[in-house]
């Protein structure tokens, strides 16, 4: 058999495999879409129709009532604001602090570099549930002045939530940013130092602007991660009205009965900001997922 014949045969033999692949991919896509499409359809149907005809029946009535009710009963605008008050400071502080650690560990050779980096990376691996009990007790014992916290404690204040987000997210960000900064030539610092730039100037004016692509990618990723938090807010914020949107979705459900169609509509409101961020900043999102993959 000649080489060409083998190649041709292989192309022929591949055809059923390729069909199988398409079938598989289509089935998988379908399986992933069922719950999402199901929720979207449910969100436009009245509950009375769903319970009479079943969740997978063909919809007869389409209405925006669920959205209207979810918006007012779930107090969605207020919950968006609660989330924003936690999310944006947490995002800024996380990126600011972790870029500083990354700068030091990547631009200076220091004896404890590796140890420090491992410490930050190890923090990533710690499950939240393990530290919640001591953290809660600790937060409950830290007093805060009234103007910073309604409860008079770190527990139940937005600061407590911002703090724990910064602590938990900076591990991953430090890891990613230090890898990225390592790729920048060392001579940049040397040149700056010769021109008389101090450490702060090297960080703020030379390295940080060059790290912007990585920061943008991380910002998009971190936005969705912090936004999606449910756990911290449920445990560390006792006032129902002050909880972020993810933790207050359940407010629409009752002791026994839950209007699933109403919850479906509210879920759409919850999902919307992350969808917008993803669609608008898709480019950075994908960059963010691969950014730490290569080691400098």
């Amino acid at each position: 058999m000649t080489a060409r014949a083998t190649a041709g045969a292989r192309r022929h033999r591949l055809r059923p495999a390729r069909i199988l692949l398409y079938v598989m991919v289509t089935l998988l896509a379908f399986a992933w879409l069922v719950p999402i499409v199901g929720a979207i359809i449910a969100s436009f149907r009245p509950y009375a129709e769903t319970i009479r005809a079943g969740a997978f029946s063909w919809p007869h009535t389409l209405t925006l009532d669920n959205y209207r009710n979810a918006w007012s009963q779930g107090d969605i605008p207020h919950k968006y604001l609660n989330t924003a008050v936690i999310l944006f400071p947490a995002l800024v502080f996380t990126l600011f602090f972790s870029s500083m650690v990354a700068f030091v560990t990547s631009r200076y050779s220091w004896r404890f570099n590796v140890l420090l980096l491992s410490l930050f990376t190890a923090g990533n691996l710690l499950p939240q549930q393990i530290i919640i009990q001591p953290l809660f007790q600790f937060y409950n014992r830290v007093p805060l002045p009234e103007f910073l916290s309604n409860s008079g404690k770190l527990n139940g204040s937005v600061w407590g939530l911002i703090l724990i987000h910064v602590a938990f997210q900076s591990g991953f960000c430090t890891f990613v940013l230090s890898n990225y900064m390592k790729l920048l030539p060392k001579s940049l610092n040397d040149a700056a130092r010769i021109d008389g730039a101090g450490v702060w100037k090297q960080y703020w004016q030379i390295i940080l602007p060059l790290t912007l692509p990585a920061l943008a990618a991380l910002a998009t990723l971190e936005f969705t991660w912090i936004y999606n938090d449910f756990f911290w807010a449920v445990v560390l914020e006792q006032q129902g009205a002050d909880r972020p949107i993810t933790s207050s979705l359940a407010n629409l459900g009752g002791q026994f009965f839950t209007d699933d169609n109403l919850i479906a509509a509210a879920s759409m409101f919850v999902a919307l900001p992350t969808l917008i961020v993803y669609l608008a900043l898709q480019r950075y999102f994908i960059a963010g997922l691969t950014i730490g993959a290569e080691k400098g």
């Binding site: 139940g156 449920v234 207050s248 359940a250 407010n251």
Partner: peptide
Amino acid sequence: LNEVDHNTFQENITTYLQN
């Protein structure tokens, strides 16, 4: 009023009773 959904309230009762 401090309004929390029934399920979350029940699951959180031990931490809730501390404040």
